[in-house]
Amino acid sequence: MKKTLSLTVAAIAAVTLLAGCGTDKTAIKDETPTQAKVESQPAKETSNAEPATTKEGAAPVEAEKKPDDIWTYYNDAKWSDTWNGVKSSIEKVVVTDRAPKKEDPNDFTASAVGGKFKIEYTTAVGVKFKIENTTKNLYTTYPDKAELVTSTGEQVQADMVISDHIGGEIEEGVIKDGIIFWFLKPGHASDIKWIKMKWYVTEGDGLGMNQKRKEYSVKLELK
Rank of each mutant, 00 (worst) to 15 (best):
G85N: 10
G85M: 12
V86I: 15
K87G: 07
S88V: 14
E91D: 15
K92W: 14
V93H: 08
V94W: 11
V94P: 01
V94T: 13
V95D: 10
T96V: 01
D97Q: 02
D97H: 03
R98T: 10
A99W: 14
A99H: 05
A99M: 15
A99S: 07
A99N: 02
K101W: 04
P105V: 01
P105T: 04
D107T: 11
T109K: 15
T109S: 13
A110M: 14
A110G: 04
S111F: 09
G114S: 07
G115P: 04
K116W: 08
F117R: 09
F117E: 15
F117Q: 10
K118L: 12
I119Y: 04
E120R: 00
E120Q: 07
Y121V: 07
Y121G: 00
T122P: 02
T122H: 02
T122V: 02
T123C: 09
G126F: 06
V127W: 03
V127C: 07
K128T: 14
K128Y: 13
F129A: 01
F129K: 00
E132K: 00
N133L: 03
T134G: 02
T135R: 00
N137P: 00
L138N: 08
L138S: 05
L138E: 13
L138Q: 13
T140A: 09
Y142F: 15
Y142M: 05
P143N: 07
D144R: 00
A146Y: 06
E147D: 07
E147I: 14
L148T: 07
L148I: 10
